[in-house]
Amino acid sequence: MTRARKAPARPAPDGWTLVWNDEFDGDQIDRSKWDFDIGNGFFDYHSHTWVPGWGNEELQYYTDAAANAYVKDSALHICAIKESLHGCGYTSARLKTRSRDGAPLFNQTYGRFEIRAQVPWGKGLWPALWMLPQNDTHGRWAASGEIDIMEIHGEDPTRTLGSIHFGSTYPKRSLVTHTHKLPSTTTVADWHVYAVEWEPGEIRWYFDGVHWATQGFWWSCSQTRDGQGLAPRRASDINPWPAPFDHPFYLLMNVAVGGNFPGVPNAQTQFPATLVVDYVRVYQRSAGYGESKPRAPGRMPYSKQKA
């Protein structure tokens, strides 16, 4: 992908105040803002088992090596490379605003989260810009929520997805995914601005400043048995609205390879596959946030699950 001129600075959107950002104007990743996930999975201390592939059967080994994540030409580059490491056939990087020991680098409850990026595509690629809770306030994933600002189904460069994960601890969780068809003159490989506005009781997705989806219904249940989430059986099992989207979340950016969502790469998938990020900007509502009432669920779109 070719690098375009850096986006010019512009005033904050009406009603919003900039509170945190990274313009990637230096010559290296700012480690006071970003840390890395490392490896091909995690240890689940509740079940005392190793979870390979990050729970999604992903094929990459995440590193903090300069080949997989670096700053160049005032942009962050996250590169998935076809190479063997520790039993995996690919390497990549996953950056986050939360340190590996759990300490916060940056997190926020509510706000506008905006990222300008060029996104790689191809069979088996799974780039994502997303958010996770700083703490498991309401229980382990997905009882405490997840917000996906942008992800793509690797072989389709003409659509972006915006999702939320919620409900009870896995496997009794729920997923709502909205799909946005891009204008016919562009693909995700071009420069675009992806954003969500998250307020009490409502999450809105934006593409190049155009509001394209709204979600105003979800739920959270903290009930478990033997570490497994339980479906709520009575109203008192549901955490007070607007849980789980009522506590601080941190940011993540990555390029996964393979997994149960995009499938495996094929001969046409091009590597290195590079996600290029011009900036990350986070805003707060200038006038603050009011209270919100939950909406009726109505008909909710459902998509492939990300476990």
Rank of each mutant, 00 (worst) to 15 (best):
S292P: 10
D278R: 03
R285E: 11
K304S: 07
Q268D: 14
Q284V: 11
V257P: 15
G290R: 08
G288V: 05
P262S: 04
P272T: 04
K304A: 06
L275V: 01
E291K: 11
Y279A: 06
R299I: 14
E291I: 09
V264G: 00
N254E: 14
A296K: 09
K304F: 04
K306N: 15
P262K: 01
N260W: 10
P297L: 04
N266V: 08
G258R: 01
R299T: 15
K293H: 13
N254I: 07
V282T: 08
K306T: 13
Y302Q: 14
G290T: 12
T274E: 08
P294W: 01
A256K: 03
P272M: 03
A287G: 14
A267E: 03
N254H: 13
A256W: 04
V282A: 06
R281T: 07
G263M: 00
F271N: 05
M300V: 12
P294C: 02
K306Y: 15
P262W: 02
N260F: 09
V277C: 09
G298N: 13
V280D: 05
R295F: 06
Y283W: 05
Q305G: 10
E291Y: 11
N260M: 10
P294G: 02
G258P: 06
A267G: 01
Y302C: 05
Q284P: 07
R295I: 11
K304I: 09
V280L: 09
V264M: 00
P294Y: 02
Y302P: 03
P301S: 09
A256S: 14
A267Y: 00
V276I: 11
L275N: 01
A267H: 00
Q270P: 05
V277H: 05
K293L: 14
P265C: 03
P265I: 01
T269G: 08
R295Q: 11
A287D: 15
V264C: 00
Y302G: 13
G259D: 00
V276Y: 03
R281V: 05
N266W: 06
Q268R: 07
S292K: 04
Q284D: 13
F271R: 02
Q268Y: 03
G259E: 01
Q268T: 11
V257N: 10
S303N: 10
V255C: 10
N254R: 11
V282D: 06
S286D: 04
Q268E: 12
G288D: 09
S286I: 00
P262F: 02
R299S: 12
Q284W: 06
R299L: 12
R281M: 08
N266L: 09
G258Y: 01
T269L: 09
P265A: 02
P301V: 08
M300R: 15
R285V: 04
Y289R: 13
V276D: 05
P265W: 00
N266Q: 11
A296N: 07
A287T: 14
M300T: 12
G288C: 08
V277R: 04
K306M: 12
V280Q: 06
T274M: 03
P301E: 08
R295V: 13
A267V: 01
A296P: 01
Q284T: 15
Q305S: 12
K293C: 13
S303D: 13
A273H: 03
Q305T: 12
Q305V: 11
S292Y: 04
R295C: 08
Y283R: 06
P294V: 03
V276P: 05
Y289K: 10
V257E: 07
M300Q: 15
G263H: 01
T269E: 10
A307E: 15
K306G: 12
G259W: 01
A256T: 10
